[in-house]
Each structure stands twice: as C-alpha cells, then as structure tokens.
Computed example of a mutant assay.
Amino acid sequence: MAKAKDKRREKISIATEIDRLEERRARCQDNLERAEFRSRKEKLSEEDRQELEDEIAIMNERVQKLDRELQTLRGENRKNMLLSVGLLAISALFYYVFLYSEEAS
C-alpha cells in the first residue's frame, strides 16, 4: 500500500505537495491550540488531563514531522528553481550567441 501512495505522490508537483502539507499542519496546529486552551480553561479529572496531555504530545510530534517534511520539500523546490533558472540562463546564452553569430555572418 505504501508503494501505491508513493506512486500517487510522484505525479503530484512539489508545490502542490507543499500546499497540502501546509494545510495539514495548519489543521494540526489549530487542534493543538484548542487542546491547550481546553487544558488551561476546563477543570478536568486527573485521567482526562493525562489523556489530553498525551493528545497534545502526539499533535506536537505530528506538527514537528510535518515541519521536517515541509523543510525537505522546500529544499527540493529550491533545487528545482535553481535548475530552472540555470537552464533558462544557458538557453538565453545560446540564443544570443546564435543570434549574434547570424548577424556577424
């Protein structure tokens, strides 16, 4: 099943994947803030408080994991952008060399 998921992700652009992860991170962050607010404002039994703290810890781990994935994807996006700019510069250089060599002839 993981292979099918990876194949689907291969077809998605990096920018789309970044947007998707940012949305997931925002939802996790909202849930985390709600849980933290609830832990501060509500009077909870010791058992409920422990469950809420466990939930907060899990959400913190998810947010950190998403942050790492986003950092990796943004690095890939930067590499792709630099490659694109480099190819554009080389193409422009060849175009001008070809254009000026035609004028010189």
Rank of each mutant, 00 (worst) to 15 (best):
S101N: 10
K43H: 12
L52Y: 02
Y96H: 07
K41F: 14
Y95E: 03
F37A: 08
D48K: 06
A15H: 10
G75L: 14
F98Q: 09
M59Q: 08
E51P: 00
N60F: 08
I90F: 13
K79W: 08
D19L: 13
A57F: 02
E46K: 13
R24C: 06
R25F: 00
S13C: 03
K7I: 09
I18V: 09
A2K: 13
G75H: 12
R34T: 06
E53N: 02
L52M: 09
L87P: 00
D67Y: 05
T72G: 10
C28T: 11
I12Q: 15
A26K: 14
N77E: 15
T72W: 14
K7L: 10
V85W: 07
E22W: 03
I18A: 03
I56V: 04
A57N: 04
V97Q: 03
S101D: 08
K3E: 08
R24D: 09
N77I: 07
C28E: 11
R24N: 09
R74V: 05
L83F: 11
L21D: 00
S91T: 11
E61W: 13
A92W: 05
R20V: 15
S39W: 07
E47P: 00
G75N: 07
M1T: 10
R9L: 14
R25L: 02
T16D: 15
M59W: 05
R9H: 13
G75R: 13
T72H: 12
E42P: 01
F98H: 09
L52I: 06
L99Q: 14
E22I: 03
Q29H: 12
M81W: 10
Q29L: 14
R27Y: 12
R40T: 08
R62W: 06
A26F: 12
V97N: 02
N77D: 14
D48P: 00
K7T: 09
R9P: 00
Y96D: 04
R8T: 04
F37N: 09
L83G: 05
K41D: 10
A89D: 01
Q71G: 08
E103T: 15
E17N: 10
E69I: 09
E46H: 08
L44W: 02
R78A: 14
A57I: 02
R74N: 08
Q50M: 12
R25V: 00
K65L: 11
R27G: 07
L82A: 03
I56Q: 00
E36I: 07
E42W: 11
A2P: 03
S13W: 04
I18H: 02
R25C: 01
S84K: 07
E76M: 15
F94Q: 04
L21G: 03
L66F: 09
A89P: 00
Q64K: 15
A2N: 13
A104R: 15
K43D: 13
L66T: 02
S101Q: 11
E42K: 13
R40E: 11
M1G: 05
L66G: 01
D6A: 10
D30C: 03
L52T: 02
A92F: 04
R40N: 06
F37E: 11
F37G: 01
L70T: 00
E10H: 14
Y100G: 10
E102H: 14
G75V: 12
